[in-house]
Design a binder for these strands. Structure first.
Lengths: 254, 254
DNA sequence: CGGCTTGTTGATAGTGATCAAATTCGGTGG
DNA sequence: CCACCGAATTTGATCACTATCAACAAGCCG
């Protein structure tokens, strides 16, 4: 049995899944103590990644999956003409890289939006463990299923929503994810730049800026640089036409 | 060992994975004979679905995953305002429904584009089998990974490409998938309507129609209703800015 | 053959992109 | 602590792509 002899959160201290405050949200979710320890054994914790640094790059050999411990990442794909599309932002406890499963090479790149620490999970070992721990297998597939639903919601957003609806959807998405982590759902800091937001939402930067100011004039939000306060969640939700990520529109409709 | 006593393709004949011409593309891929038989045992083959019929509907209890045997399906999600976004078309051998994994309810609907037969795989049994057959588990995860990459390519298309590029991408995607099934890559029949295409690509029907005629004038394609001939694949590919679904942009770029 | 759905073509308009410029922010060094 | 520089953001003016509206043609099926 491992003992955590160093309770101080100093750099160099190796944390473990068992004591990680995120284990109820992260991959260990639903694993029993024994299984969690086996997962913990294959995880590598490296030094922090600085803002702007790449965690992995499209085309590199696909070797590991990552879980964000602190900080935030963006993942993006490159079109052959060089244009990039940000496919997602990843906050603490979220898994990055599973999109590449079945590929010898990463099909996307991941870059740190701020100083970020991650747990690295080597693919070969994760793969072996997935065959031995049914709960882990299920959790991996659940994570992939969630990713698919998220991406399909993004397709809907990109193909059917106008600029205001996109921004509202985006804000509510981030809000929900912060709330799930125990942070305020109405007052938070956006870790990404306006350019990143515009890229992700398929809009021009200028449009993001204009919608933000319009929302502010209408009393929906309050912004101060990257700090943001959601003042009228109901209207934002309505604008977003949002269906929360988990109920997937299951309702009495029709 | 099962024997196929009825070689005639009459209705009512129950085919099996072992003898299915699609087993090299479908879920049984990479399973050995023994494993394939166990998978085959849990599969149900029902009567054909007629054009326009629903295979399952968003919000219904999530009970089964399906593999298309013949025909074609579209899957789509509904926004809360009722607008629908077609997230994908599914041809023979392709799996439908995995996007809902981890959900108690289907997060999307599936409708037949033409008379279609499917293999139904009950989720609980598939789930059990996935824990017993490592190859099946890997294949399921590969399928989900492919779906994620496909959806992320769609995000790029919807957010960065103009009308002509979208249509070219679409045509090349369909072409590639037919070719993989042994059909012509240049001469095929689109199973979906123009409206479906426009919805999927985030364009108006009229725009689809106009791009088709423009392509025809420029000698890129030849159309006759749903029949289509690709006459200049190189230019189409270039327009698509396409990166084939499997190499995911791995190249010497940069 | 007639009614209805699907697809095509034309004219116009609107949303958001693009170009240009001003302003603020963030970090750095004096 | 403040001045300064480059980057990020905001604001304004104009343009373009594609949506929308309208009408027509062509399949499709009873």
């Amino acid at each position: 049995m491992k003992s955590s002899t160093a309770p101080s959160p100093l750099r160099g201290t190796q944390p473990h899944c068992q004591t990680c405050s995120l284990n109820a949200l992260c991959l260990p979710l639903s694993l029993n103590d024994n299984d969690m320890e086996r997962l913990d054994d294959i995880i590598r914790r490296g030094r922090p990644i600085q803002k702007g640094q790449l965690l992995f790059q499209q085309g590199e050999p696909f070797q590991s999956v990552f879980a964000v411990r602190t900080g935030a990442l963006k993942t993006y794909t490159l079109a052959s003409n060089g244009e990039e599309q940000i496919t997602g932002f990843h906050l603490a406890s979220e898994l990055v890289g599973l999109a590449g499963y079945n590929n010898d090479f990463y099909p996307l790149s991941a870059k740190a939006l701020e100083t970020t620490t991650v747990c690295e999970i080597p693919l070969t070992q994760l793969d072996e463990l997935a065959d031995e721990l049914p709960d882990l297998r299920k959790q991996l597939m659940r994570t992939m299923g969630t990713e698919i639903r998220h991406d399909q919601n993004m397709m809907l957003l990109l193909s059917k929503k106008n600029a205001e609806e996109r921004v509202a959807s985006f804000l509510m998405d981030i809000s929900t994810r912060y709330a799930r982590r125990g942070f305020s759902a109405t007052h938070f800091r956006l870790p990404m730049s306006r350019v990143d937001i515009s890229n992700h939402l398929g809009l021009a930067v200028e449009t993001i800026s204009r919608v933000f100011t319009r929302f502010q004039k209408n009393g929906l939000i309050e912004t101060q640089g990257k700090e943001i306060i959601l003042q009228d969640i109901d209207t934002l939700n309505q604008l977003a036409g949002l269906v929360s990520d988990d109920d997937c529109g299951h309702s009495d409709s029709k």
